[in-house]
């Protein structure tokens, strides 16, 4: 992917990431987050990680954010849009951001591996889905099963808790 596209997607992602915080209407924030996710997915695709990119759209933009939006719409939050800007808090926020960027850059440049170039991803006849599958089900098979069981237990727990009458 050409660098122009990279910068476009980065700009879109950062702009809408900022809009998540700055936007006063909750629905606007949620939708900004969706656009930010889409741009992030585009960046994943630019790294040839199609699977991660598509899963990013499918899970976060397509399912999680829809649920968020659903709940925001049902709650009908109006208080947020009436709130006044708290000037000292905004200044404090900017100070924190600047300090964070400072610390991050210090760490990155002092760290040896931070400057290292990654080798290009080997493009076999199999797609990246195949690679992800192989790694998940061979190298990390046991953790995957454990996580799967955990999620199963959690979902069963949700079903039981959401039943009104426990017998």
């Amino acid at each position: 992917m050409s660098p122009i596209l990279f910068w476009i997607f980065v700009a879109v992602m950062l702009f809408f990431g900022g809009m998540v915080v700055l936007n006063r209407s909750p629905v606007g924030s949620a939708l900004s987050l969706v656009v930010s996710f889409l741009a992030l997915a585009a960046l994943y695709v630019s790294l040839d990680a199609y699977f991660i990119g598509v899963i990013q759209i499918l899970v976060y933009a397509g399912a999680v954010m829809v649920l968020f939006l659903f709940i925001i719409m049902l709650l009908d939050l109006r208080a947020e849009s009436r709130r006044r800007v708290n000037f000292p808090a905004v200044c404090g926020g900017f100070v924190v951001i600047i300090l964070f960027i400072k610390v991050l850059s210090e760490v990155c440049y002092s760290f040896e591996g931070g400057n290292a170039k990654f080798p290009p991803i080997s493009q076999g006849p199999q797609g990246d889905v195949w690679h992800v599958g192989m790694i998940l089900f061979q190298q990390y098979n046991v953790p995957l099963q454990v996580v799967g069981t955990l999620i199963l237990v959690a979902s069963i727990g949700v079903v039981i808790l959401s039943k009104r009458v426990l017998k």
Partner: peptide, 9 residues
């Protein structure tokens, strides 16, 4: 490679 997943996404 992600064909169908793209459709769903």
């Amino acid at each position: 490679d992600v064909g169908v997943l793209w459709v769903f996404a």
